[in-house]
Every structure is written in C-alpha cells, then in structure tokens.
Design a protein around this nucleic acid. Structure first.
Length: 589
RNA sequence: GGUUCGGUAGCUCAGCUGGAUAGAGCGUCAUCCUUCUAAGAUGAGGGUCAUUGGUUCGAAUCCAAUCCGAAUCACCA
C-alpha cells in the first residue's frame, strides 16, 4: 500500500476512533506540503471542521496526536497552520523505500488485468501519412504501452480505409496521367507516388469545373458533371461489381501504398496484431440490421431504407441501411465491432480516432448497446484533437499538410547536427550513430506530440523547429544518458546503510515513489501526457540533485551508495516512463 | 439553430474530484564548465486565470448568463 492511501485510511480511522464519525478514506484530501512549510504531507482539515463541529486547531491537535500513534515509525511530528495539518515522514521510511526499490519493482501491481484492444492509425490508401496520423500513431502506441505497463494484455489493431470514391480518384488520375509509370520508375515511396495522383485528380477536377462554368454551366451542376468525377464514380461501380481490370489496378496501386506505409511504420515504430481492410468489412453489419429489425431497435421507411430513432437519447435519427440494401459507415462499424469481439473476446476496445468523429462513436456505442452486442459496453472512443497549423487546419487537397516522412527525416537530421556539434560520441560506429540520431529525433517528435492532453487540439508551427531543450524528449534522454555515464564509472553494486537524507535526496525518493500511481492514472484516463509531465519533472529534479550533490565523490561511503541507488532508480524510472511514450533512451548521447 | 469541446504569462502548455502566495518550457536578461555529460543548473522579469454574477470559511477549478473560437448535427468514410 502506498503512503498516501495509508494516510487517508489512517485519517478516516482516527476520526472514527476519536469522534465516532464515519468518513470515507477517499474524502480525505492529502497534498504534498508546500515547501515554505514544515512537513512532507498535508491533510486539509476544513472538510471535517463543519461535520465534526470542532475548530481547526483543536481538531488538528487531536487528529495529529492520534495519527502519530496510528502510524508509528512513519510519522514523526506534525504542525497546524490555518487549518492545514502538516506531517513529517520519518527519515527511516524514505530510506527504506529507496532501499527496497529496484528496477524490477517500479510498476504498479494489478490484481485484475484486462484484455484490451487498441485500434489506431487507420490510414487511407490514397495519400501518404501526415502530422495528424503521427499524433494518432504515437497516441495509440503509447496507450497500448501504458496499459501493458499496468499489467493488461493489449491487442493492437488497425483498420485500413482502402476502398471508396477517394481511392478511385487516385486510380483514375493514374490511368489518365501516368503513362504507366510506377514508383520504381520515379524512385518515389509508393504512398507518395499514389498521393501525387490524388492531388493531380483534384487539380484536373478543379480545371474541368472551371471550364464548364466558363461555358455557362452553374457551379453546382459543373461539380457533378466534370468528366473526371464521373469517371471516378463509374470506377467505383466497376470495383463493386468486381470488374477484373479495375480490381487489378486497385490491388496494384494499394500494394505501392502499403510498401510506403510499411517503411514509415517501421521507422516510427507502429505495429499491429491484426489489420482489417475496409474492402473486406464494408459489407458487414447487414445481418445485424435484420436482427435489429426483429428486435424493433430499427424501423423501415416506405422506401425500404432502415433507420434508428435516437431522439430519445438526445441524438437524431440515423440511417443504418440504404434503400438499395447497402451498408453505411455506421453499419460497417457495428459489424466490425462484432467481428472483433468474436475474434479476440476483449474486455474493452479503445478506438483512437479524431474528435471530429465524437458523434459517430456516441451513436455507434448506443446502437451496439441497444442491439445488446457483447462488444457494446467495452467501446471507448479515445478522442484526440486535430493538429493545426498557425494558419488553420491542414488540408491535403490544398497542399497544406505536414508530411510525416518529411517531418521525421527533418527531426533526425537536426538531431544529427546537434549531436555532431556537441561531439560527445566520437567513439560510436556509423551504425550506432544512425541509431542514436533516430532515437533522439523521434524522441523529440513523439514527446512533442504526446506531452499535451490528447483531447485538446494542438498548434504546430513548421517555421519553428521542435525544441531539444526544456520540456522535451531529448532533455529526458540526456538526463538518462548522464546518469548512465556516472553509473559506468561508479558501478552499480551498493551496500545501503541508514543515513540522514538531504532535502534533494528525499525529494527524489518521494518523486520516484509516485511512479506507479502515475502509470495507473495515465491508464485510467488514457492520457500519456501525464507520464510525459511526470518523467520531465523527475528528470528536472535529478538534474538539480546532480548540480548540487556529487555521486562519485560523495562526502561518505554511505552517501555514495545511497546516491548510486537513487541514480539506478531514476534511470530505470525514466526508461520505463519513456517506454510508455514509445521513446527509447540512449546509454550515451 | 441543437449538441459537444475549448479560452490560464509574448508563444506552447500544466493545474480543473474546490484548499496555503496560479506553475513549467520556449523566448528575454543575468550568473555557473581546471569538479561525476552545460541537450544541464541557478536567479530575474513576465498574469484583470475571456467577461459578469452566484454558491462557499475558501473559486482558475463548481453553477448560471454573456462574448470569442473549434468540431459535429451526410443515404462520405
């Protein structure tokens, strides 16, 4: 049991014992004591003052005395300032927490592990990945890691949006403009190659519409009549009929895209236990519509289309099957939820999808619940905000996107420049150097995207390069490397004997002991930024400690051992915290 | 118009289950490498916590109204 829980329970116990009043331990507010006051932890008395009919000073004195008895050897003294009851924790307690901790027992214990699916990435096969996808990928990966650190089993999946009118657009543009060229001919990554034809489609489309309008057609009609648009629609029909030539082209172009995605995924570290393709799932959910009609969850309109009325739940009516019998987006997702549940039988399923789809997932969960699908209650939409430029939203059609590959390469080359100018790794082999540049560049990028609350939209300014100082990935990586450098010199075998802790040593012990609670909180709220903030604070604290106190040349042997142990624990905690963000920490940089 | 989310330092963000004098980083200014890695440390400066009212011993945090911004309310996915 951790100290804060212990304090809460003891407070509740003491109040019951003193006054016969039952208080829930969760009601007790325990804070770290502000530095300007004496003590380590503070209990706020105001909450009980009214309930118990005592004045704060009297209550504080009685409670404080009772607590010292209730937690012998842990609490040594207390003081009361204006309704705040401050406790000092014994030196021995902190010393023992340092002594008993090891890199192997830093993580929270989990008595009820769950099996959780995390679906993330969800790319379209008509264009390369951009900055928004990176936020999605890093979030999905990080959530999966955090849940694993908490002791759960995680199944990572991906749904590829590989069909539909937008795919046909790049296909028809390739037919019209490529003269049979392939990525190999142009020496381009396949996803970029195909993406270029998507852009070419839009250019041609705009030109055709303009031409028609100039010829006297209305804008609205011209948008429907543009020949290239009609061609794309025809192609979609052919695709749905399984036309051989169309399918061949589709498969060929998709394979180029997948090759490109694989390279990017490998670089940024994304992987999946199972990849679903929309071309296989877009017909799913039809039988569930039948089931829903039987259960009278759905109803049919005169034209044959099938709907659900969600006005009772504060939402609208929603179509679930077209009059021609085909599925719509929501129907596919219902079907896919059922398929995934049958295949993996998970306790929960987290969808990492942008907040523009909040409404969709609300509806999805509601419909699944009304259909009483086993998957229903486990559906959770991890909704994240868009990454925007200072000029506004990124739009791939207008070319205002930050390309994922470009950004990653840019970060890696900056890390290369910085590393070279500092010249601290002269003995590295070329392969080691490449690995280090990757680690630092990706570390900076991932940390940048994960350090803010996922729910909030974030601004990325391409004019300002992502920082390597301060609240950044490289800062934490550097702190880790710095500790490892010291430990290489001092060795890591320690004999710990009790000694009086200095304020910075104690502060480190306290911060280190918070790690399991941080992991649990990040897992419960699905928020990696909690871990990012924690690792930063820990690194900062260690750096202050480092500047103030020597490890290798400590004033005594017992201090040296203690500080080596603190170094070992800090390095291990930083390493695990960064792993939770999908970031590696180098031994040297 | 309905629903949802947001507005905290010049910039990017923490803090939001109400608690002591609202915190970081960047940028600005100043100091510290003959001492374990200066991608570091220390300090200074920077705030009507969008506005107004309410609840409370106590409000950035809760409630209401208003202003500003975003998303969504598709037989696209």
């Amino acid at each position: 049991m951790n100290l804060i829980t212990n304090l809460k329970q003891s407070t509740a116990g003491c109040i019951h014992q003193l006054y016969g009043v039952q208080i829930q331990p969760e009601q007790v507010l325990v804070n770290a004591t502000k530095p300007e006051f004496e003590g380590d932890y503070t209990i706020v008395l105001f909450a009980f003052v009214k309930q118990l009919g005592k004045n704060p000073d009297q209550l504080g004195n009685e409670l404080g005395a009772a607590m010292l008895t209730a937690m012998p050897g842990i609490l040594t003294e207390f003081n009361i300032v204006k309704g705040f009851l401050n406790f000092t924790i014994s030196n021995q307690f902190w010393f023992d927490t340092i002594k008993n901790a090891s890199p192997d027992n830093l993580l929270p214990t989990n008595n009820s592990p769950r099996k959780i699916m995390v679906e993330y990435s969800s790319p379209n096969t008509n264009k390369p990945l951009h900055l928004g996808h990176l936020r999605n990928n890093f979030l999905g990966w990080s959530i999966a890691e955090i849940l694993k650190l908490q002791g759960n089993e995680v199944v990572k999946t991906c749904i590829v949006n590989d069909r539909g009118i937008h795919i046909c657009k790049s296909m028809i543009a390739w037919q019209l403009f490529a003269n049979g060229a392939t990525p190999a001919d142009t020496k381009q990554k396949g996803d970029h190659f195909v993406g270029d034809y998507y852009v070419k489609y839009n250019d041609a489309y705009k030109a055709q519409v303009a031409e028609l309008v100039a010829g006297g057609m209305t804008q609205e009609l011209a948008e429907k009549e543009a020949p290239i648009q009609k061609g794309a629609q025809e192609m979609l029909l052919k695709w749905e009929q399984g036309d051989a030539a169309t399918m061949d082209l589709w498969k060929r172009m998709n394979s180029w895209v997948y090759e490109g995605f694989d390279t990017t995924y490998k670089k940024i570290g994304s992987d999946f236990v199972k990849t679903y393709y929309e071309s296989n799932t877009y017909l799913l959910g039809k039988e569930l519509v039948e089931k829903g009609l039987e259960k009278k969850v759905f109803y049919q309109k005169e034209d044959g289309s099938v709907w659900i009325d969600l006005t009772g739940d504060g939402l609208d009516e929603k179509i679930v099957r077209r009059k021609d019998g085909t599925s719509v987006y929501i129907t596919q997702d219902i079907g896919l939820a059922e398929v995934k549940q049958k295949e993996f039988n998970t306790d929960a399923s987290i969808y990492v999808v942008g907040d523009e789809q909040n409404y969709h997932f609300k509806v999805l969960k509601l419909i699944c619940q009304k259909l009483q699908l086993p998957a229903a209650d486990g559906i959770y939409h991890l909704s994240y905000g868009m990454v925007e430029l200072p000029t506004g939203k990124m739009k791939s059609r207008e070319g205002t996107v930050v390309d994922a590959d470009d950004l990653v390469e840019g970060m890696i080359s900056i890390s290369k420049e910085k590393t070279e100018s500092l010249g601290k790794v002269s003995e590295f082999t070329q392969a080691q150097l490449e690995e280090l540049y990757n680690t630092i560049g990706l570390g900076a990028l991932k940390f940048f995207l994960l350090r803010v609350d996922p729910k909030k939209k974030m601004i990325f300014n391409p004019e300002e390069s992502i920082d390597f100082h301060g609240f950044t990935g490289p800062f934490i990586q550097y702190t880790h490397a710095r500790i490892k450098s010291i430990l290489r010199k001092t060795g890591t075998t320690v004999q710990l004997t009790t000694c009086e802790l200095l304020p910075l040593e104690k502060a480190l012990a306290i911060e280190l002991s918070n790690f399991p609670a941080v992991i649990n909180e990040a897992a419960d709220t699905l928020d990696p930024s909690k871990v990012a903030i924690y690792t930063f604070n820990l690194a900062k604290l260690f750096n202050s400690f480092y500047a103030e106190l020597s490890i290798a040349n400590a004033e005594s042997e017992e201090k040296k051992n203690l500080r080596i142990q603190l170094g070992i624990l800090t390095a291990a905690t930083l390493q695990k915290g960064m792993r939770a963000l999908g970031i590696d920490v180098p031994e040297q940089m």
